[in-house]
Nucleic acid binder design. Structure first.
Lengths: 256, 256
DNA sequence: CTTGACCCTTACGTAAGGTGAGCCCTTAAC
DNA sequence: GTTAAGGGCTCACCTTACGTAAGGGTCAAG
C-alpha cells in the first residue's frame, strides 16, 4: 500500500503542509501512520477523505461542520446541502447588486472626472443603513444635494443654490408630466433643462457618446433604485419608469 | 450642529459600537470630539465618511485599503474599483459552478438514497487538485469505480467486478458510436445497458420521473465536466455532447 | 442617593491558516 | 566520516474584523 508524506499529499491535493497539520490537530484528517520520528504518513483512504473535505470546504462549510458532515449519515448531509444552497443563492443575489453598484460607480467616475459624492454615496448600502438615511432625507432632490454640498467645492455656494432650485423645479415639472408620453416634445424639452442641471453638477467632460451613455445610465439608476424618485418618503415606481424611458430616448436622439 | 454618541451612530448606520471603536483606533473614522470623560461624539461629516467606508466595505475592500482609498484622489479609486470588479466577476463565476455542484449533489443524493461516492466526490474541486487526480485516473470508467469500490459496501466484490467490466464495455461501444445519431435505435439500445449499469451502482429507488431526471442530469454532468469522458487523459468534448444528447433522449422516451 | 443606561479601556477568542524559529531525521556527496 | 541539503517536527506568534466579557467611570431620572 502506498504511503505519502505530508509534502507529497500537499503537492497532490494542493493544500499546504500547515493545513494538513491543522487538520490532524483538529481531528479532521489523521495520518494513517506516524513514523518513529513522528513523521506523518497518509494512505489512499486518507487521500479520499481529503477529497471529501476539500469538496465541502469549497462549498463554504467551516471545517468544524465538514467534520460533522463526514461523520453524519446522508440524511443530515442532504439537509446541510440544501441549507447551504439557500445561503449561496442569497450571497449571489447580493453580489449581483454590488456588481451593479461598481459598474455605475465606475461609469460615474469616468464621465465625471471628479467625484461629486452626490449619487454614488447613497448606493450599495445594506438595508438598515439606507433605512436610516431615508428617514433623514425627507425631500429627495434638494436634500441629497444639500448633504453633499460641502464636497461640491468647485461650485460656488450661490451656484449650488441656484442649481438646487432649478433641479427641484425640473423634478416637479417632470413629475407632473409622468403620465405623458416619455418621447413627447414637452417632456423632452423639460429633459433639456434636466440634462443641463445634471451636467452642471457633474462637470462637462468627455466625449458626447460617453455623455449619452452616462445620461442613459442615470436613467437606469433611477429605475433600479427607488430612493432616487421618492417623494415624501413614498417610492414612485411608475414615475421612475417614465423617467428612465424619457432619458433613454433623450440620450439616443439628442446626445449621439 | 448635531452630535451623535456611539450608540446613536451605531443605530443609524447599522455598524456595531465595537466597530466604531475599532475604526477610531485604526484611524479610519475619528470622532469629531471627545467629551471630558472620553466619550466619543460624531458629527454629520463623520456620518458621511462612515457611509463611504461602508460602501467600500460592501465592495469587499479590507479596512486598510478603504482607508487608503478615502485618502487617495479619484484616479486611484477608479483603478481600485476596476480591479475589484474583476475579482468580483471571478468570484461570481466560481460561485456559479459551486451552485451547480450543489444542485447535482442534491439531485444525486435524492435519487439514490445512499451515497455511492462514485461521482460527486470528484466534482467542485479546484484546478490543481483535480489536475493531480487526473494523472492518477488513467482510465476514467474503470478507475473511478475501482477507487470507490470500498464504499460500495452494499455490492459484493464479484458483482462490482462484473459491473466494472460491463461499464467499460458499454463505454467503449458508445464511444465507437459517437458519430451516429444520438437518437438512433442502436445507440439507444446500448443506452439500455448503460442505464442498467448506472442503476446497479446507484441502487434503484424513487419514482420513475425522478429517475428520468437523474439520468438526464447525469448526461448534463458528462457535458459539464470533461473528466467524465476523458479517454487516455484526453478530453472528448464531442463525445460528451453526443452522450448527453443520447441520454436526454433516452430519459425522455424510455423513462417517463 | 441610588439605579439603570450608557460610556470607557483592556484584553482574550474566533477561522483558517502563514510564517518563522529552533531542532531532529535521512540521505547523498565529498 | 562528515557535512550539507531537504524534509519533518513542534511551538508560537501574526492576520481580519470584529464579538464578548471584565472592571470601572459618567450621567440623568426618580
Amino acid at each position: 500500500m502506498q504511503q505519502y508524506s505530508v509534502k507529497q499529499v500537499a503537492k497532490i491535493s494542493g493544500v499546504s503542509v500547515r493545513s494538513l497539520h491543522l487538520y490532524d490537530e483538529i481531528g479532521l484528517l489523521k495520518p494513517a501512520q506516524r513514523s518513529e520520528a513522528g513523521y506523518r504518513f497518509y494512505g489512499e483512504t486518507e487521500l479520499l477523505r481529503l477529497q471529501q473535505i476539500l469538496f465541502f470546504k469549497e462549498l463554504g462549510f467551516p471545517l468544524a461542520q465538514v467534520k460533522q458532515v463526514l461523520e453524519q449519515p446522508d440524511f443530515e448531509l442532504l439537509k446541510a446541502l440544501e441549507w447551504q444552497k439557500k445561503a449561496f443563492l442569497e450571497r449571489r443575489a447580493q453580489m449581483e447588486q454590488v456588481l451593479q453598484t461598481i459598474d455605475q460607480t465606475i461609469l460615474h467616475l469616468k464621465n465625471k472626472g471628479v467625484m461629486s459624492n452626490v449619487d454614488w454615496l447613497y448606493r450599495g448600502i445594506s438595508k438598515e443603513q439606507s433605512e436610516a438615511w431615508r428617514k433623514e432625507a425627507t425631500e429627495q432632490w434638494g436634500d441629497a444635494v444639500e448633504k453633499s454640498e460641502k464636497s461640491l467645492n468647485d461650485l460656488s455656494r450661490a451656484k449650488v443654490e441656484e442649481l438646487v432650485a432649478e433641479q427641484k423645479a425640473v423634478g416637479e415639472s417632470l413629475y407632473r408630466m409622468r403620465h405623458h408620453d416619455p418621447t413627447s416634445s414637452e417632456v423632452q424639452a423639460m429633459l433639456v433643462r434636466h440634462y443641463q442641471v445634471i451636467r452642471a453638477f457633474w462637470g462637462t467632460t468627455g466625449h458626447s457618446d460617453k455623455q449619452a451613455a452616462a445620461y442613459a445610465g442615470l436613467g437606469d439608476l433611477y429605475l433600479a433604485d427607488e430612493r432616487y424618485t421618492m417623494i415624501d418618503e413614498e417610492p414612485q415606481p411608475e414615475y421612475a419608469q417614465f423617467l428612465q424611458q424619457a432619458m433613454a430616448y433623450f440620450a439616443e436622439t439628442r446626445l449621439k
